[in-house]
Simulated assay, not measured.
Amino acid sequence: MTSTAPAPRLRADAQRNRERIIAGAAALIGERGPEVPMEDIAQRAGVGVGTLYRRFPDRHSLIREVAADMFRRVTEVAAAALDEEPTGWDAVVRLVRHCAEPDLGALSGALRGWLSEHRDRDEELRSLTAIWLERFETAVERAQAEGAMRTDIGGADLLRLISLVTCRMPELPAEANREATARYIEIFIDGLAAQGR
Rank of each mutant, 00 (worst) to 15 (best):
M1W: 08
A5I: 15
A5S: 14
P6H: 13
P6F: 08
A7F: 08
P8A: 12
R9Y: 08
A12K: 15
D13R: 15
R20S: 13
I21K: 05
I21Q: 03
G24W: 07
A25Y: 05
A25S: 12
A26F: 05
A27W: 01
I29E: 00
E31Q: 13
E31G: 08
G33N: 05
P34G: 03
E35G: 14
V36M: 09
P37S: 09
M38P: 02
Q43A: 13
A45E: 04
G46Q: 09
G48M: 10
V49N: 14
L52N: 06
L52Q: 10
Y53D: 10
Y53Q: 08
R55W: 03
F56C: 10
P57W: 07
P57V: 12
D58N: 15
H60E: 15
H60P: 07
I63V: 15
I63K: 02
R64Y: 07
A67I: 00
D69S: 14
D69Q: 14
M70K: 09
M70A: 12
F71C: 00
R72Y: 03
E76K: 10
E76F: 01
V77P: 00
V77A: 08
A78I: 03
A80C: 07
A81R: 02
L82Q: 05
E84W: 02
P86R: 05
D90P: 06
A91D: 01
V93Y: 01
V93R: 11
R94W: 04
V96T: 06
V96H: 04
R97E: 07
A100H: 02
E101N: 04
P102K: 01
L104Y: 02
G105Y: 00
A106D: 11
A106F: 00
G109L: 12
A110V: 05
L111T: 00
G113V: 07
L115S: 12
S116F: 13
E117F: 04
H118F: 10
D120Q: 10
R121E: 09
D122H: 08
L125Q: 12
S127G: 11
T129N: 04
T129S: 09
T129G: 05
I131S: 03
W132C: 00
E134C: 04
R135N: 14
R135A: 03
F136D: 00
F136Y: 13
T138H: 09
T138S: 12
V140D: 06
V140S: 03
R142K: 11
A143K: 05
Q144K: 10
E146N: 04
G147K: 08
M149R: 02
M149Y: 04
R150W: 12
D152E: 09
G154K: 13
G155S: 06
A156E: 12
D157P: 08
I162N: 01
L164R: 10
L164A: 13
V165K: 07
R168Y: 12
M169L: 13
E171M: 14
P173C: 02
A174S: 11
N177P: 03
N177C: 04
N177L: 06
R178S: 01
R183E: 15
F188S: 07
F188Q: 09
D190H: 14
G191R: 08
L192W: 03
Q195L: 11
Q195W: 12
G196D: 13
